[in-house]
Amino acid sequence: MLLLIQYTLIFASVLILVALGGCFSEHSGVINIGLEGIMVIGALGGALTMRYLTAGMPAFVVILLVVLASVISGMIFSLLLGVAAIKFNADQTLVGTALNLLGPAIAVVLVRAVNTAESVDNVSSTVVYGQAKKAFLVNMGSFEFNWFMLIALLILIASYIVLYKTRFGLRLCACGEHPQAADSVGINVYKMRYAGVLISGALGGLGGLVYITAGVSEWKFENGVAGFGFLALAVMIFGQWRPINIGLTALLFGMFRALSNVYMGFDALVALKLPSTIYNMLPYIISLIVLVFVSKKSRAPKAEGVPYDKGLR
């Protein structure tokens, strides 16, 4: 049971971070379907940093450096989306899809290059970071507390405040709802959209890092992040682009995902004799069903996906 809670919380943390990332991007008016790719790149940045960190550094420094690396790699990668969508009016779905393909490809090519450079026989795409990862964990009895759970909670609260209580949030949402209105009161729509995309890159990258450090101590980048970026999109929609709802949805989806890892510990579930694949599938099936009910009166930002062109008014 404790294990279920632990896994639920850590998966929920990932989903919260990434879904909030999507939320910021979409509130600014840019659909970010490339979260999956951004997660991979964020994870890559973090994993490589952990790999090369010297042992014996204080835990706090390790956490800081690794998080920074993920956040920055995520942001740089998200700029690809930002530039294409904001500056060049590219189709956001198309570019997002490209990001999803590009992320894992870059990760595999880089990791393999690094591994091969180290030893010619090593052609795997795996990064090992067992030691450094321990910095994130605090054992409380048999419960393994992960600092990222706290970080995700803090970011959730911060997002709520930023979106609804600050000047930045007000302006960001205005750009996603009615960019012409924002422009007419002197808000730089392009800047705000870049800000939205960069925040989504930062949070997506961080989410990627949390995901690969959740259970294991090495990561094979050929696997990408196994659809978590897409799951986060579902969380965002299910949460109707609102931070608090996103938090609750993430807990729900995190639990389903966790079940597939630990259902063996529950006699009732084992007795059902369902293959573990079913639990993997459940969040997707549920989101599909939920989408049917929420899509008719969706609160999606009105101008999302529409490139803003100053010339057209």
Binding site: I161, K165, T166, R167, L170, R171, C173, A174, E177, H178, Q180, A181, A182, S184, V185, G186, I187, R299, K302
Partner: peptide
């Protein structure tokens, strides 16, 4: 009209010339 439909009247009026204190509106 250049109004954000899901915002309140007040939010629309202050948009662009908001006063903040400690970062909060």
């Amino acid at each position: 009209f250049k109004l954000v439909e899901c915002f309140s009247v007040l939010d629309n009026i202050i948009l662009g010339v908001e006063t903040t204190k400690g970062g909060l509106l």
